[in-house]
């Protein structure tokens, strides 16, 4: 995984790609959870959603770097 990528001519950290990827992934997970009503089993759905995002982003970042 490259440490930095060129967007046009601007170099941005490679972690930004991971961030965008995990946002897309979480969108899917969110849709699934909504579809099967899994949010009934948690206390604060929005807190769990942001924590799940951090889990996905952190794991991907640690794996790829």
């Amino acid at each position: 995984m490259p440490r930095e990528i060129a967007l046009g001519d601007a170099l941005v950290p490679g972690l930004l790609l991971v961030f965008i990827g995990s946002m897309l992934l979480l969108w899917g997970l969110d849709w699934l959870a909504g579809r099967y009503g899994l949010y009934r089993y948690v206390w604060h759905p929005s807190l769990v959603r942001i924590a799940a995002f951090i889990c996905v982003f952190g794991s991907l970042g640690l794996l790829l770097f």
């Binding site: 948690v42 807190l47 924590a51 951090i54």
Partner: peptide, 12 residues
Amino acid sequence: VTVLVVLLAVLI
């Protein structure tokens, strides 16, 4: 469940 997920997020 909520606390576990948040804890995991903090560690990662």
